[in-house]
Design a binder for these strands. Structure first.
Lengths: 175, 175
DNA sequence: TTCATATGAATGAAAG
DNA sequence: CTTTCATTCATATGAA
């Protein structure tokens, strides 16, 4: 059994999304909580494995469940605390808590900040992550056409994943 | 403005539906996925630009969105391989299911490297959050006993929160 | 049924 | 790249 949740974003009705989800037993929750209270916040993969293994005694459970549990529990603990701690806000004068959150908004630009705008046949593939992914170890190149009238996404893959005719113009083909 | 943030249509009990972050349309996701499946993993700035530009046809989207999408998708594809694979038997007895992972080469290979009790000294507390935890910034260790009969969860916490003795064997204690 | 809440799951964004 | 954070989505459950 594997819960596959398809997230139909926007578009129309966001229905669907059906998947069974883990339902922890009280015992499992009790132990997870204890570990949390003991100070565990972000268990490592190893720890997750161990915990999962042990807790499986009480019922079905997977590693990812443990992972999510801690993730959520920690987040919500913090969230709860954040809502309750609105003491310094309406107070002291010019303390406009600047929205610094947007200050460093574009992190990705730091690395790729290059006004370069060469448009041609692109050379993809960092070549460092091919053996491990489920994708194919093939090479391809993205040919982007600059025509701007009715762009068309045209995937030229031997995989036979041809999409209809979306108004795009990103051509991808093997080399 | 343009309704780029639909979502709370029929949901009265729906959450706030804030429009703070990018919400890819089905079409956008479809295309991104295709590119990914075709082998694209780490698009260059140019490529990101082009893709973003093309996908903007379907809705609001920025370059960084594309950048992050690939980064996350790639990472999670890999992470999935790591977390969703260990299925535990709820019947005691821990067959050392060997470490015949899939293809990963990190962290996991050292799981059950020892048939004895594996004592891992955990380094908890990320320290990036103030006193959000009830525990102090201390270190603890998880003592996992591999006995395959009647595991017992034994939390050795100074808090005096001793639980009974469930059939588990994950010992957690401060160091 | 409808609304409200708790929480598992997912994922965009960022930090490390 | 890896890991963590923040926010959101979805479902199960219980109250009204």
């Amino acid at each position: 059994m594997s819960g596959f949740c398809m997230r139909s974003s926007s578009g129309s009705s966001s229905t669907g999304t059906k998947c069974g989800r883990w339902n922890p037993t009280t015992e499992q929750v009790k132990h997870l909580t204890q570990l949390f209270r003991a100070g565990l916040r972000t268990p490592s993969t190893d720890q997750i494995q161990k915990i999962s293994n042990q807790l499986s005694f009480y019922g079905k459970i997977e590693s990812k469940n443990v992972f999510y549990w801690f993730q959520n529990h920690k987040a919500r603990e913090r969230q709860k605390r954040r809502k309750v701690s609105f003491d310094d806000d309406k107070d002291v004068i010019v303390h406009h808590r600047d929205n610094s959150m947007h200050a460093s908004k574009q992190k990705f630009v730091e690395m790729y900040s290059e006004p370069n705008r060469v448009i041609e046949t692109l050379e993809l593939f960092p070549l460092n992550s091919f053996g491990e992914s489920e994708s194919e170890s093939e090479k391809l190149s993205v040919h982007v056409n600059e025509s701007r009238e009715n762009p068309i996404f045209a995937y030229t893959c031997t995989m036979g994943e041809q999409i209809e005719h979306p108004p795009l113009d990103l051509r991808l083909s093997f080399v």
